[in-house]
Structure formats: C-alpha cells, structure tokens
Simulated scan of single mutants.
Amino acid sequence: MPPHGERPGEGDVLCQSERGGDVLRYQSKTPDASLKGNIEAISMWAGQSVFKVQKQQAAAEIIDEMLTEADAVSNLSNKSPT
C-alpha cells in the first residue's frame, strides 16, 4: 500500500454527510441515512467477522442455508422429551 499522502485518489470527496460534512476516499466513516453521493466508493469495514468467510456464495444461497439451519433447529426444539 502506498504511504499516506500518496494513495490513488486520496483526498477525493466521495460523499457529503449532513452530520459531518465531506467524506473523503480512505476516510473511516460508517454509512448512515444522511450520506449523499458515491456511497459505494467509501471504505466499508468488514470487521472481525471477515475471518469466518469460508467460500464465496450468492446471497440467495446464503439465505437458503440460513433457512434450512433455522428449520432444523426449530424441528429439534419442537420434539417432545421422551
């Protein structure tokens, strides 16, 4: 990564926020409803959960997996004790 001050597009204004003014490329800014502009181009931090990603999947596939898992858990909890 190039050093601070030499990164491509550094200083470009990507969005404006009603609460905080201009949002620059590489600036740490959590998106909120007040942002106007090129929101897709601002930094989007993945956080600590990114290490849990094991494979690339379509959103529909992820939802299907979640529903299948939820159904399995629901079926387990609906079984009466013996």
Rank of each mutant, 00 (worst) to 15 (best):
I62R: 12
L35G: 09
S34E: 12
R7M: 03
K36Y: 06
N75P: 04
R7Q: 04
A59H: 01
W45R: 13
Q57R: 10
P3I: 02
A33H: 10
G20H: 12
H4M: 06
R25P: 04
T82V: 03
D71M: 02
M44N: 12
T30F: 02
Q16D: 11
A59W: 09
Q27S: 10
F51E: 13
G5Q: 04
S34Q: 08
N78M: 15
M1A: 14
P8Y: 08
R19V: 01
A33K: 10
S34N: 07
D64Q: 13
Q56P: 00
A70T: 01
I39K: 09
S74G: 03
G20S: 11
G9V: 01
A58C: 07
D22W: 00
A72W: 10
G47T: 09
G47H: 10
A72L: 08
I42V: 12
M1G: 13
L14H: 03
K79Y: 06
A70I: 02
V23H: 08
M66S: 14
P31D: 05
L67E: 15
S34R: 04
A60G: 01
D64T: 09
L35D: 08
V13S: 10
N38E: 15
E6R: 07
G20C: 04
D32R: 03
N38Y: 06
L14S: 06
R25N: 12
N78W: 05
N75W: 01
I42T: 05
L76G: 11
S17R: 02
M1T: 14
I62Y: 07
N38R: 13
S49M: 15
E18F: 07
V50E: 15
Q27W: 00
N75A: 13
G21L: 04
P2S: 11
N78S: 14
E18Q: 15
Q16F: 09
S34D: 14
